[in-house]
Nucleic acid binder design. Structure first.
Lengths: 224, 224
DNA sequence: TGATTATAATAGCAATACTATCAATAAACT
DNA sequence: AGTTTATTGATAGTATTGCTATTATAATCA
């Protein structure tokens, strides 16, 4: 595996977009502004008319890149999982202790350590991931979309984390369940902490989420 | 606390509806048909026009009960949490062993043991809960809605489960986080098993989900 | 220079998410 | 029995959304 330390280009299924947004400045502007606008007004209120107005372009132009706003959300979430994959490589290269690898992975999934990457506001992006990403698959045509491989990037992260778990305990029977429980759990707890605090437990320690899910996973893996 | 064994009436915040659907046959018909139609076509495709056609009534009539389709979803999810509360009483009355209480609770949350209740198709309802319920709070106006208490019924279930956890270990610091991780986890795994199997681990044992989350919770609680 | 491509500008249309009005009917009260 | 009141049906209408089509203009490339 070869990775550049200073650059990563998103490896996203072409079925998600009509025209690759990374192929033009207008395309990347759709992504950057899209992230910010979805963060600002929420996915339900978000539409291509508002985005085009924010960007000073027209609706029709955006439709040449994405079939609809759901495909844009799919692109944004896929981009996030690409970014996570890149971060995992960055943080776990040369780490041999599998428990540390797991903890590093949970850390990456819990908080972006930078503010911007390639003009994308990572804070806003992570916020969207917590509050909107499940809407990319909780839809009626999920099976069709899945056939086209649009969830590839999420699945890959789940596979990578599962590998770490199996490296700790090769007989652990539920690695994928545990991983998605942790990932979706992180997103929910972040959201609850901000909006529905009685559904979570807020603690002063900035690493409490990381520790909670790391302990949860460690106990589950080693108990079997 | 007094509970009737044979009947329960949903205790739902009046801010959710304009006119109580339990106060008329048309109102209950909106709920029953709403559950079935949302299950059938998904919440995004669902609207009051289609529901009124299915029911042989008019859009305007439904709007007299609910402001919009999101409020209807909120009602349906609240009704589900009322039903869960009722089931918890039913299954845990006279049970003193807190571990069994916890396992019973997880069992209730994992699968409805009946097919219908009060003309509501519980299978369809549970399906909606897995795939749509998080859309009732993953929205931009969540804070306003929360002020009006519309998430009361979910919070109550989380509080009840947290109490069981604290009864097992009074010093456990994250009961709410653990409970919501388990509840949302169950919903996700059910959905993944049906649509995105590579994100979960399907096992023949029909109780594998119950066991997985019970073990997860037990380990977490007792390790502290 | 001419041909191709990308974007802008504008228009338009079907569907959605409501709201308003009024008539018909049924229930409830005197 | 007659009058008020509440509920639903029927119809219409409006603003917004989601999306497509058309033409014009600017940028790029052979």
């Amino acid at each position: 595996m070869e990775y550049s330390l200073f650059k990563f280009s998103a490896n996203i299924k072409t079925d998600i977009f009509l025209k690759d947004p990374e192929s033009s400045t207008l395309g990347t502007s759709i992504i950057n502004n899209g992230v910010d606008l979805i963060h600002q007004i929420g996915f339900e209120e978000f539409n291509f008319r508002k985005l085009s107005q924010k960007m000073g372009t027209t609706e029709a132009t955006i439709y040449r890149y994405f079939e609809n706003k759901h495909k844009l959300l799919l692109y944004i979430t896929s981009w996030y999982w690409c970014w996570v994959e890149y971060q995992l490589v960055l943080h776990n290269t040369n780490i041999i202790d599998q428990h540390i690898r797991l903890k590093n992975a949970i850390k990456v999934l819990t908080v972006p350590n930078e503010h911007h990457y390639a003009d994308i506001n990572l804070q806003n992006l992570f916020n969207i991931i917590c509050s909107e990403s499940c809407k990319s698959y909780l839809i009626k045509n999920v099976d069709d979309l899945n056939k086209y491989g649009v969830y590839f990037n999420y699945k890959k992260i789940v596979a990578i984390l599962s590998q770490i778990i199996l490296a700790i305990n090769p007989t652990y029977p539920y690695p994928h369940m545990l991983v998605t429980t942790v990932i979706e759990g992180i997103h929910h707890q972040k959201y609850f902490a901000e909006h529905l605090p009685s559904l979570t437990d807020k603690v002063d320690d900035p690493e409490y989420l990381i520790n909670f899910y790391f302990q949860l996973a460690k106990n589950a893996i080693n108990q079997h």
